[in-house]
Each structure stands twice: as C-alpha cells, then as structure tokens.
C-alpha cells in the first residue's frame, strides 16, 4: 500500500492499472462542447393566415433517461415573438438569459422614444420576430465560428417587417431557413410530412385558419409521442397572433390509441 499523501484516494495501480494521464490533459487544443448533455427533442411550428402555432413537449432527457418532466421550451420575447428550443437545455437557458437582457434593453429605448400622444409604450415598434431571428443567427454563427457552438436548433415565431406571420429556424451552425411549416429533430422526419400536407407552399398559408393549424400541431405532437422515444405526452403550445401570444404550458395528449403498436416489428430485442 502506498501511503504517500499524493496517492490518497487514488485507485490502486495493482488493481486498476496505472492512471491514464491522457484523461487529464491541460495542454493541447482547447476543447469546447462536444455534445449536448440534457436535451429537449422536437419543436414544431406552422404558419396560418393570422399568425403561427408552435409546440414542444415538456421533457428534458439525460441521454435516454427522461430526466426532467416539466421543462418549458417555448420562451416568450416581448409581446408578439416566441422561440422554441430544441437541443441542449443549459444552452437554452443561457440564450434565454441573453434574450431577457435584450428585452430589458429594448424596453429602455421604447420608452425614451415615446412621445406624448403614444400613451402605451408597449405598442411602439420594438424588435420583431424577423429582427430577433437575425440576431439569433448572428449569435449562433459567432459561437460556431469560435468552435464553441450553442447546441440548439431554434424556431422563431411571430411577425416580420411586413406584418405577415413569420417563422424561421436557426441551428447550432448558424444555418437559417424558413418555410410555412418547420420542425426540428425527429419532428423534421415525423411531423413535417404531415404539416406539409396542410401547407404545401407559402400561398396556402392564407387559406389556413387557426383551428386547423392548432389541430395539425396537436396531431403532430401525438405522432411524435408515438414514435419518438425521447418525447412525452405533456407539452406546451403557443398561438401567436396580432392580439398577442396565447401560451399553454401544461397540455396533455388526448385520445391516445396504441392499437398500432403491436404491428410494429423489427426494433430492439423483438425477434418475431
């Protein structure tokens, strides 16, 4: 037994082998986030004629463990913009605080530029969803260029400069794109085909009413819960319109039917 103080608490070499010093490298290239740790799964959103519907479930997974079951991944910014976060939850929290500080700063300037005839300063032009999406894309791209990405894919929903419904995505590389319906993660494979049936192109957005849009999203959430193992049946849904944001954070999937389940074959340990 080695009684030297520097060996205290160390695994014994004769049992575990010599310590592999490559695990504790202080030199060498700087390493940043290599993978997300606690993660949220899909975010899905669809535009309709008066606004946008967006939803996420309330689960934060630690690997395959359903670790936190009341995590709200829709974050509101000001009166008429909402962001849905997929990916790393701690990075989402960082971005949430970043957005809060931005919102506080915006509040300063909207008051100072208010004049006497505009009593309600909240209606003054502030950062809209388009502005915010541009900002987010710069933040994300900057971080990926530092080789230290924020491990998220984000959907930004609200209104653009033209006062029309706005929906766009930005991911950990700073890549941006926009479409009448968007989905991140598994949703891109499982929900997007369903939503595209409803709004195949930009023109069809004008024909979609709120009820159909909300129903489409709810259907998609159900499909996602059926087929995505990192999802759950409690979810948040928000409807953004000119009147503001109607955010519900404690929705439950209704009318589940698992009858299809026994017809699924070819996964895991199942052999027949």
């Amino acid at each position: 037994m080695n009684h030297l103080p520097q060996a205290w608490g160390r695994p014994r070499d004769d049992v575990y082998g010599a310590y592999d010093h490559s695990y504790f490298q202080t030199s060498g290239p700087k390493q940043s986030t290599q993978q997300p740790i606690v993660t949220g799964t899909s975010v899905i959103a669809i535009k309709f004629k008066d606004g946008v519907v967006i939803a996420t479930d309330n689960l934060a997974s630690y690997g395959s463990l359903a670790r936190f079951t009341d995590v709200k991944r829709l974050r509101q910014f000001n009166k008429s913009t909402i962001l849905g976060f997929g990916g790393d939850v701690s990075d989402m929290q960082y971005l949430d605080r970043l957005l809060l500080s931005l919102a506080i700063r915006e509040n300063y300037s909207s008051y100072s530029s208010a004049s006497d005839d505009t009593d309600d300063t909240s209606n003054l032009e502030s950062l809209n969803a388009k502005n915010l999406h541009t900002y987010m894309s710069k933040v994300m791209y900057r971080r990926r260029s530092d080789f230290n990405p924020l491990w998220n894919q984000i959907l930004v929903a609200g209104f653009g400069n033209d006062e029309k419904p706005f929906l766009a995505s930005v991911d950990l590389l700073g890549t941006t794109f926009s479409s009448p319906s968007l989905a991140t993660g598994f949703g891109a494979h499982l929900a997007q085909p369903i939503m595209r049936k409803v709004v195949p192109d930009e023109a069809s957005v004008a024909n979609l009413d709120k009820e159909t849009a909300v129903q489409t999203i709810r259907d998609c959430m159900k499909v996602l819960f059926y087929r995505d193992a990192r999802s759950m049946d409690k979810y948040s849904i928000a409807v953004v319109t000119k009147d503001g944001i109607d955010l519900k954070e404690d929705e439950k999937l209704e009318n589940q039917s698992w009858a299809f389940a026994d017809r699924i074959k070819g996964y895991g340990t199942q052999v027949v």
Binding site: S109, S112, S113, L127, K130, N131, T134, Y135
Partner: peptide, 15 residues
C-alpha cells in the same frame, strides 16, 4: 442592420 436587420432608431443613435 447587420445584427438585427433593423434600421437603427434615431433616438438610439442620438443617445
């Protein structure tokens, strides 16, 4: 314009 795609408010640039 670059970070927000927004024309800077005049009150802000003046401040």
């Amino acid at each position: 314009r670059l970070t927000y795609d927004r024309a800077i408010p005049l009150a802000e640039i003046t401040a």
